[in-house]
């Protein structure tokens, strides 16, 4: 029992000392790296969510990412690729985010992390793909998507008409 007491004490002390500091943290510091710097986004063509035509990108998910990047004061570096390429790059930590009409459930779950989902007019649950284990970054995205849930819904309603 003595060991368990020390252990519990240690954990509580650690948590109290860390109160207000960054928790959870990213093993590879994605959230800190993105803020004020560069957001590396992988995109696979999936109209109407993510479309590229003559170097111009459009679509709802593209707009969302642009909005996110603006708030994070980050410059977007786009990368193209098919789904499995994007997943592989996410796993290697070469991307911070992947978009392109991904919906839950997806076969990629387990290999990469999924954000909070939002429903479209067709009842599909859309998600972004995120590198696995970058928990601070994932939580930031989840919170950001939750904060913009109402906008997303209204946007969907307009498109649905």
């Amino acid at each position: 029992m003595r060991f368990s007491h020390y252990f519990a004490l240690g954990i509580s002390a650690g948590l109290i000392l860390c109160w207000g500091c960054e928790f959870p943290r990213d093993p590879h510091g994605t959230a800190d790296r993105v803020r004020g710097h560069v957001l590396r986004v992988g995109m696979t063509q999936q109209a109407p969510w993510a479309v590229e035509q003559n170097g111009e990108r459009s679509g709802f998910e593209v707009e969302l990412v642009q909005k996110l990047a603006a708030e994070q004061q980050a410059k977007i570096v786009w990368q193209a690729g098919n789904e499995s390429e994007l997943v592989k790059r996410l796993e290697r930590g070469e991307l911070d985010l992947a978009i392109g009409g991904f919906v839950r459930p997806t076969p990629w779950e387990g290999r990469v992390a999924l954000t909070r989902s939002w429903g479209d007019a067709a009842g599909l649950e859309h998600v972004f793909l995120v590198p696995p284990g970058e928990n601070r970054w994932l939580l930031l995205l989840d919170r950001w998507l939750a904060a913009h849930a109402e906008e997303i819904r209204q946007w969907n309603d307009r498109k649905g008409v």
Partner: peptide, 16 residues
């Protein structure tokens, strides 16, 4: 393998 522990929605707030 890097374990992913994300956010969860509770009472309108997203917590870890």
């Amino acid at each position: 393998e890097h374990p992913t522990i994300g956010g969860v929605q509770i009472f309108g707030r997203t917590i870890w």
